[in-house]
Amino acid sequence: MRPLQPPLTLLSSFQSYASYFVRCLKASFAYRAATITNLLTAAVSYSITIMIWRQVYSQNPNLLISSDQMYVYLLLAGCVNYAMIMNIEFRISQRIRNGLVATDLLKPVDFQIAQGIQAISDGFFNGSMGIMVFLCGFFVFGTRMLPPDFPCFCLFMISFLLGFTVMYGVCFVFVQGAFYTYSGYGIMASRNALQLTFSGVSAPLAFYPPLLKTIADWLPFKHIIYSPISIYMGWAKNADAYQLILQQACWAVFLFVLGKLIMKHALKQLEVQGG
């Protein structure tokens, strides 16, 4: 049997993905009210975290890192965390629940890559909000918000992009659960709980009790926030920074392949109701 459409060339594939990216970006900006809502609630949450650490430092000023460094770390963690927000779990689980995922699978593009492009468009929009938070931090902390040197910044950019890929990989693997449970909330909340605990968003991993730190080292979540920021702040330099970047790349590839394999299995038992 002949296929309905001729296979796409590399160039036309790229054009499809590019136009898809532009459409997604426009959609992100259309929902800016919801994003600003998230930004405000995140700001209140971070204020609570900062006030708790302020209290800890007032009682015990001689911790592993200075209070100023801690506040800079928390602000940067907030910016990076914000840029990493992607709605793919909500989007995919909704489409699985109402059956629209069937039409996605008929499109002549790779489902996983198409969702990744949508995640990048989320990242562009949320990243711009993250930059605003960074500028507010710069207003308060001045040059302490900047990396120690230019190579640190370059390595941070690589690490940040890999962190974004790891984040996408984690979300994509988790959302496969929606093919079995049809529940978006549970998937999103469980991933969120693990990420809040092990990514280092509320404290550097160096502050963790040994047991929690060991678990964090074995999971991918620390590569989403802690690894890029420790490179940015110059805590991980030269060989240490390269090692972190290599680990991130390995996790990104592993999660991408794992997501593909799980989805292949999940699609076999997908039921879409007609009518």
Binding site: T181, S183, Y185, G186, I187, A189, A193, L194, L196, T197
Partner: peptide, 15 residues
């Protein structure tokens, strides 16, 4: 399933 997933995840968030 929603019930078990919901209970599990709310416990995870508290944890």
């Amino acid at each position: 399933v929603d019930f078990f997933v919901g209970v599990l995840t709310s416990c995870m968030l508290q944890l």
